[in-house]
Design a protein around this nucleic acid. Sequence first.
DNA 1: GCAATAGTGTCTATTAGACAGTATCGC
DNA 2: GCGATACTGTCTAATAGACACTATTGC
Lengths: 254, 254
Amino acid sequence: MSPYDPSAFPPFAVTVDLVVLTVRRHALCALVVRRGEQPFQGRWALPGGFVRGDEDLAAAAARELAEETGLCAHDPDSPASTPGAHLEQLATYGDPRRDPRMRVVSVAHLVLAPDLPAPRAGGDANSARWATVEDLLSQEGGFGREGEQSTPLAFDHARILGDGVERARSKIEYSSLATAFCPPEFTVGELRRVYEAVWGVALDPRNFHRKVTGTPGFLVPSGGTTTRQGGRPAQLFRAGGATVLNPPMLRPEV
Amino acid sequence: MSPYDPSAFPPFAVTVDLVVLTVRRHALCALVVRRGEQPFQGRWALPGGFVRGDEDLAAAAARELAEETGLCAHDPDSPASTPGAHLEQLATYGDPRRDPRMRVVSVAHLVLAPDLPAPRAGGDANSARWATVEDLLSQEGGFGREGEQSTPLAFDHARILGDGVERARSKIEYSSLATAFCPPEFTVGELRRVYEAVWGVALDPRNFHRKVTGTPGFLVPSGGTTTRQGGRPAQLFRAGGATVLNPPMLRPEV
DNA sequence: GCAATAGTGTCTATTAGACAGTATCGC
DNA sequence: GCGATACTGTCTAATAGACACTATTGC
């Protein structure tokens, strides 16, 4: 067969799946939706859907994100987009048997978002929720915050979620992306709690403060202060222009 | 439309494209093939082809690699594969207009290989060659080593190649992947020349030697020595078991 | 000897990590 | 006052980078 014979290619469906991460109550959480149909009916899955015929992959991911959360994604590769959550391509999953019905290639995307109000999913408020990554990835399922048992995720979504979490854990080391988990204005302590939740470690508040305020372009003071965390008023910052951190934040050893 | 109605998805073609990098004569080079048909007939392009209906994405990439180079890819994610070149998924490109004939989503893969004999491409030795990354990515095309002008790469392959080069440049900082550019046994000086070619910088041989031999698990002595680089005989090493380098190699500032 | 590469030692400026101590809020 | 968090300063061990020096080959 000719390498580009348009009439001779096998038919594929192409979807986007979203790993939407946020930090809630000092825990790294992901957005999951309940499947209403077979296969895996009733199980939790990552949000996602088909790429339309005239739609770019990043556009499809941003559309699905808006449909599920109302978030406006900020794709660093596309020039003009309203500020909001960070969106980037994660990886593509194409095992021939990953969907029992047909050949589906899924282009997974990673979204990092600040703590949000309750998710919505097409008007059915009960069909989407935040769950801790720990619960979703524990082998037997574990228990959600309402005491509801989390069965394993549908399809290969546990692997996709694991890859997304690993990407987030490593990217906040050498980029300023941890600020994507924070509201527009935030304190050094709030940023530290993001690192602690994503990495699952405790960091020295004093050395952390010295490190982030000493990294050029990471944070810019916004002028105000807040006492929303209690204690002495803390200076408020915005994300600076730097995207790459040099020197990087160092993740403590195991 | 139901989010998973099997009869209602738009038809996509899915291909794999390969960014095959090697170091030749102190320069980072990529494998390109000449297109025999429209569009972009006669232009250079990255090797690649359709994913078969029952084939995983990584398997398709390994098959294309073997067809183009005879290399056996070593995918770190798959358990048993003959040692050879390193292969990993790079990114997926799905702009609706990236191929003028139809909707093609391409899952690009990155291959890092030691210096190889001349490439082959389906028996037609003239239709595949190594070109320096510098020539391929220079805006106007530049000149290849035979003095032949390199026109810009077909499709969006210049962008894919640029992304692959950037991935390679950053991955050799914090992983042991630079050894994938070396033969099974190599000297510290040969490894240093890999870093210098990929990063395009000059490194201090003495500090480099101290750094790589002091990083646990990076290199293991094989016992032999060689004088193939001239000068005092150099100890031969193999790649050690470590995949992540801690501390990382530091790329000098611009 | 001379050129080339390999390998070791030494000094210095920088920094990560540990931790003392002070500042400023709510209660 | 007390508890909490924010911030600044200090010490030490480790290290990146610069560079002097020696070792061992081919010619």
